[in-house]
């Protein structure tokens, strides 16, 4: 069997802040195969964005970050500090789309320029006319009507959904093998969300692109991912094939998350009402299971020892829990 496209081992991101060390991503490991989609889900603040950015090598927007562990992309360690090598991957073989399509587009640049500069950055030989032609083609690919006119407009002239399509077009510019989509639809109207998500799914399939789909909303990931990983307080708590996971959640946190799934009629950012308490302060670490203070099933052992994904006992359906919920059956249907 060939090696996975993305192979992440023990990835840890620590921020040095005035309140002390904040471990935002803690010993995270996963594999992502070519053309597959991994959904990463968790409450806001659980470290999903930091994980996505660390994989991309962008954590250092904050100069106070320290990263350990390894990220192998197609067998190459892209945490390698060599700038040139990384630049050849970023944007070209790995691309990213962001949560807020307005703030992630430069307000003073034309839509078209956002795309052409990416094209020309990674292929110096491409002419201006050619880049322009390709950009319009890409706008068409992401189903933007009247792409030639949109090319000459500014970000603020487009609706939220259209902007996110532009974000996708930029990401697709160099036909990347991996797309990291960090909450790609959270800032959009509910009705637009589905269109954009479906478009992403279709494009992944058409182009054989692998995707890391990050969301706080299980409903976004359901039906659009091959594997699901649930994050809480910087750690992956449960990881399984989507088919298994949505049939049966083994970690108490995953189940609570599913219970809290916001429905289409509700605002996109619903709180986890079904679990009392709040996620732990990342600057204040305690021994044992991170979910223990909020867990209905917590025992003494949970407060002394930290469970790992293997603790659940089923290798194909990892759960970082000493007392996984194998007896309880969830019958919930999830989709958006």
């Amino acid at each position: 069997m060939s090696r996975p496209l993305l192979h992440v081992r023990d990835l840890t991101t620590t921020f040095t802040t005035s309140r002390g060390e904040v471990v935002s991503v803690d010993r995270v490991s996963f594999d992502l195969e070519r053309g597959q989609t991994l959904g990463i889900v968790g409450e806001s603040g659980s470290g999903k964005s930091v994980l996505g950015r660390t994989v991309m090598g962008l954590t250092s927007t904050a100069p106070n970050a320290t990263v350990t562990g390894s990220v192998l992309f197609d067998g190459v360690d892209i945490t390698n500090p060599d700038k040139k090598m990384r630049a050849a991957y970023l944007g070209a073989r790995i691309a990213m789309i962001f949560q807020d399509p307005l703030s992630s587009l430069n307000p003073v640049k034309l839509i078209g320029v956002h795309i052409t500069e990416t094209l020309r950055q990674h292929d110096k030989s491409i002419s201006r006319q050619e880049a322009r032609r390709r950009a319009i083609e890409l706008l068409d690919t992401v189903r933007i009507p009247d792409p030639a006119r949109r090319f000459g407009q500014y970000p603020h002239e487009l609706s939220g959904g259209m902007r996110q399509r532009v974000g996708i077009a930029i990401a697709l510019a160099c036909r990347p093998q991996l797309l990291i989509a960090d909450e790609p639809t959270t800032a959009l109207d509910v009705t637009v969300q589905k269109h954009v998500l479906d478009l992403l799914g279709t494009l992944c399939e058409e182009q054989g692109m692998a995707m890391l789909l990050v969301s706080h909303d299980l409903g976004v990931v359901a039906g659009r991912s091959d594997k699901v990983a649930v994050m809480y307080a910087g750690r992956i708590q449960e990881e399984a094939a989507s088919s298994d996971f949505f049939r049966h959640q083994r970690h108490p946190y995953s189940q609570a998350l599913l219970d809290a799934k916001p429905h289409l009629e509700n605002p996109a950012r619903a709180e986890l009402v079904s679990i009392p308490g709040r996620p732990p302060d990342p600057a204040h670490r305690f021994p044992g299971c991170r979910f223990a203070p909020r867990c209905r099933f917590a025992q003494d052992r949970c407060r002394e020892e930290e469970p790992s994904l293997e603790s659940g006992g089923i290798p194909s359906h990892g759960a970082a829990c000493f007392y996984p919920l194998d007896a309880v059956r969830s019958t919930k249907e999830v989709s958006i």
Partner: peptide, 18 residues
């Protein structure tokens, strides 16, 4: 990419400089 980024990515812990 700047040097501190590279430093942040290098798999070695950097002591807090304060």
């Amino acid at each position: 990419m700047s040097a501190p980024e590279a430093a942040a990515l290098a798999p070695t812990a950097r002591p807090a400089r304060r």
